[in-house]
Design a protein around this nucleic acid. Structure first.
Lengths: 240, 240
DNA sequence: GCGCGTATGTGCGGTACGGAACATACGCGC
DNA sequence: GCGCGTATGTTCCGTACCGCACATACGCGC
């Protein structure tokens, strides 16, 4: 393991475990770097590892029969990829794709299942995180239905920014369009508006958030609901 | 308890439990009738009971700041209302509203939490059902984004029909519009199309499905994904 | 049979977004 | 500096859905 690899406890789920529980997992954790675009799971495919990111972002995506895509949730160091392992379904109909280069620790599914089945703090933390994920997916459904591309873009930028350090995203409009399930031109137009309003600046795949507070004001409620609910659930989970 | 009340095992989650596990719950189950429109949970509100329907349909809804509503999932006798109780969040930002008159058994949350914490078959069945619910919410997000009102109406009719006996739904277009988060006139128009195509007939709040196979063909993939995934997960859950 | 409440149908203008085609413009590699 | 690939901007048109207003139509209760 290279000296440069971050501590597993950079991941907030792992960080929230009492040391006895953490130490049972630790020997099985394997550090991996996940480049942009890497697929962790395919729809309905076998899942061999669960992933606990310490940096970067993974998207949960669904691709329709017609070839259109929709992002259901984003996952960073606050969470993990592979809830269906301990939920018991083994697979999901979704893909998991790296949206911003990740460092992560992966855990063989059998270890996760065994440790989950013990009950106790690990189980509690994982289930509370899963509820946060449900909230995010639900809010995505609502946002897709009732809010404009402008607002969805704000939500997406904020959710992504929370999962990265700094104020800058590396992401082309084309990719954002795929995530939001809209046309690339729609993103161009909305991003142009936000730039003219002085909220962001962008240039060839690099988006810099200039006025975060303004972006939050411009955004629909969906971002706030997801954020506060996620924080509430993680705090709950860290209580004894 | 009136003689007419159905057996609790009409609910598929309760039916899937080994008798030892079922018997631990049974003394705490209380039969209730839930009329159309009754709210079981409000957004962020306290949840005192979990509900296991034996008949009827409950919708999980989110209401936006702007007053628009969106249905995230429908729940019938295959499931239960109140997953956030054992997921550990205690509340959710959603409402749960009776969409077709229900008979159900309710269970005090503390009993559910205690029994869930034992681990074993109850826990497994509940978690697999929760994954099915996640799938349904996810597919709702996708359908809202990429599919027409026509297709969404087909999906909704089929999902509701699966949770009722017979081929008839009691539901005004106004209510369906609220569920789908679209205008009432949009539903009128789509329902008109489906009737002209000979798939359904309707009259003043009563919808009769004439050609179920045709409806499935007319529908987007979303219905099929939800249905097959739910069946897969319930079957898995009933295995030892 | 009359009246009223509820359910459904229709028409109109506005807009947000989709699909396609094309124009610019930046920057890396030679 | 030149050329090519990639990222972004612009235009045009079609359409699905929205909001509003209003017309019909059924059926219950008196």
């Amino acid at each position: 393991m290279p000296a440069s690899s971050p501590a597993p406890t950079q991941n907030l789920i792992l960080a929230g475990l009492p040391s006895a529980d953490y130490e049972r997992l630790e020997p099985h954790l394997e550090f991996v770097e996940l480049p942009l675009g890497r697929s962790l799971y395919e729809s309905g495919g076998q899942q061999n590892y669960a992933y606990f990111p310490t940096e970067g972002i993974v998207s949960l995506l669904y691709v329709t029969a017609g070839g259109n895509s929709a992002e259901l949730a984003v996952i960073g160091r606050e969470g993990m990829i592979g809830v269906s392992v301990f939920m018991g379904g083994e697979t999901t109909p979704n893909r998991a794709v790296v949206q911003a280069a990740c460092k992560a620790y992966r855990l063989p599914v059998q270890v996760l299942k065994d440790q989950f089945a013990r009950g106790g703090p690990l189980q509690i933390v994982l289930l509370r995180y899963t509820q946060a994920l449900i909230t995010q997916i639900s809010q995505t459904a609502v946002c897709n239905l009732h809010h404009s591309v402008d607002q969805q873009l704000c939500r997406w930028l904020l959710l992504s920014l929370d999962r990265l350090s700094g104020d800058t995203l590396q992401m082309t409009q084309e990719l954002i369009a795929n995530m939001l399930g809209v046309r690339r031109q729609g993103v161009t137009e909305s991003a142009g508006k936000l730039e003219r309003e002085g909220l962001i600046r962008y240039h060839r795949g690099v988006i810099k958030v200039v006025d975060r507070a303004g972006l939050e004001k411009r955004c629909c409620e969906c971002y706030g609901v997801v954020k506060s609910e996620t924080e509430r659930l993680l705090k709950l989970a860290h209580q004894p």
